[in-house]
Nucleic acid binder design. Structure first.
Length: 446
RNA sequence: GUGCCUAUAGUUCAGUUGGUUAGAACGCUAGAUUGUGGUUCUAGAGGUCGCCGGUUCAAAUCCGGUUAGGCACCCCA
């Protein structure tokens, strides 16, 4: 049979895994520094936990896991007869693959509410699955790196998460633009324009601004049954570049004023912080997801054509559906896959010696192979990444392997070396070769 | 869910208006080279042209279907 993997999934070769780990490790390090703790949740959740949380579109994209055993024997006969897939699902599938990390986190918080102390600060780096049609930069299996704090209304966390963004991308040497807005400001705009009931439609349209331009947004708004008069008002407000200018325009909306005040407080917390990246208020930032209720964030890479590489915001009632009311949370997510692509494009991955092979032993015959093997044990004991070619075959073949492994040094062992007790150490980059004792080699490569 | 494109060697791809035994590069194996790699030269292995059917004297090539993959939209990271 021909080997293959399911569409929308990927294999990662050693080089790719090392680079991905570099991103994950950098992110993790910053999370930990800011006092966040790791949790992990199962790959599968009960389908009832997942369905209904992501809208109708989202439900369609959930991967369902077929029940074990005689699932057809317990299937809904009516649904089966009428070929009604949606109606059939509950009777043959009770589990699904997690669609994101936020809903499982909300479930976790509710289940362990008596064991955790609030504010609860957690981070989570795990794969999620979506039965979407894959395309460039979009997969059916991909990693999310989420960091959230629940159980506090304090806006210092908004400031803290902004700093986390700044610090992570600074560590990665990836210049970004961090955009901040507040859902309440958007709600205020809708209120002022007299279309509060079309708020969700408005945000979806505004969210597309950098993709389809101002004219596109106008068209989109019109398509969503918003009057020309309201559209003109919305567009006027969207021209505003800073919070001061916005104040008079949202004077009449209490929600709008609250949103401005919140952002001012966040920026006040950021006053003394020396940011490496640009942090800016962007009134056109909307975020499609409708569970956000306060501040919202989005990060995009500078100098590269790529969608957002991170986003998040505050949600006032995430745990409500699981029966725990009035627990506010705020969190952001890092789009690891896109960060990877951007860093690859800009050539930002550093050479990481810690994961590479440093020394490879080559040998000419059975005797010298055994001798080299014993030296290898000593080198490894000293903590040096080392290996031996498993057979004393032709030197050309062994050297070829050394090249393909991109090993830094090789030590070629034969009768001369065994007699003198000195080993040859060849620098593969320069081709230079010198004779030294095993202890000297260890000292040099340490 | 909607639209468009692609499918030929392990990989990336050529393949003329349909015409004899389907090619290249890289990779792989071996030799030039019995203690030393990247370069070079030589030789070799490797393909039911995604699958099914149709048109034709003749199909990798044209047509229909099917399956798989990619891209864009929707939505999203």
């Amino acid at each position: 049979m021909k080997p293959g993997i399911p569409k929308g999934t990927r294999d990662f070769n050693p080089d790719q895994v090392n680079k991905r780990n570099y991103i994950f490790d950098t992110i993790k390090k910053v999370f930990i520094k800011y006092g966040y703790q790791p949790i992990e949740t199962p790959t599968m959740e009960n389908l009832s936990t997942l369905t209904g949380k992501y809208g109708d579109e989202g439900d369609q994209l959930l991967f369902k896991v077929l029940n074990n055993g005689d699932f057809l024997g317990k299937a809904d006969i009516m649904a089966l007869d009428t070929r009604d897939s949606n109606k059939l699902i509950p009777s043959i599938s009770k589990r699904g693959l997690r669609y994101d990390l936020t809903v499982p986190f909300a479930r976790y918080v509710v289940m362990y509410q008596n064991d955790i102390s609030f504010p609860f600060k957690r981070y989570q780096i795990q794969p999620v699955w979506r039965a979407d049609r894959p395309q460039k930069g979009r997969y059916q299996e991909f990693y999310q790196c989420d960091v959230d704090v629940v159980g506090s209304d304090s806006l210092v966390y908004e400031a803290e998460l902004t700093q986390i963004y700044d610090e992570v991308f600074n560590e990665l040497k990836l210049p970004v633009l961090i955009k901040v807005n507040n859902r309440k400001i958007l709600a205020g705009i809708a209120e002022v324009a007299g279309i509060s009931e079309r708020f969700a439609a408005m945000t979806v349209a505004i969210d597309k601004l950098d993709k389809i331009g101002l004219e596109g947004v106008k068209k989109e708004l019109a398509n969503r049954r918003i009057s020309d008069e309201a559209i003109q008002q919305i567009v006027n407000i969207l021209e505003v570049k800073n919070l001061e200018d916005l104040k008079p325009l949202l004077e009449t909306s209490e929600t709008g004023r609250k949103g401005i005040a919140e952002l001012e407080e966040v920026f006040q917390y950021l006053d003394d912080y020396q940011a490496a990246n640009e942090i800016t208020f962007d009134i056109t930032l909307a975020r499609g997801l409708n569970y956000y209720t306060g501040c919202i964030f989005e990060v995009s890479a500078k100098d590269v054509e790529m969608g957002s590489i991170g986003g998040g915001g505050r949600y006032d009632d995430l745990t409500g559906v699981f029966g725990l009311k009035d627990v506010s949370g705020v969190g952001v997510s890092f789009g690891a896959e896109r960060i990877y692509d951007v860093m690859e494009e800009l050539g930002l991955f550093p050479q990481d010696d810690a994961v590479n092979l440093k020394l490879l032993f080559l040998s000419f015959d059975e005797k010298s192979f055994l001798y080299a093997w014993k030296q290898l044990v000593k080198v490894r004991a000293a903590g040096i990444n080392a290996e031996i070619y498993p057979e004393p075959v032709k030197m050309k073949k062994q050297m070829k392997y050394a090249n393909s492994r991109e090993v830094q040094y090789v030590s070629i062992v034969g009768s001369q070396e065994m007699e003198s007790g000195q080993l040859s150490l060849k620098d593969m980059a320069t081709g230079e070769q010198e004779m030294m004792t095993i202890d000297e080699i260890i000292e040099k490569l340490k």
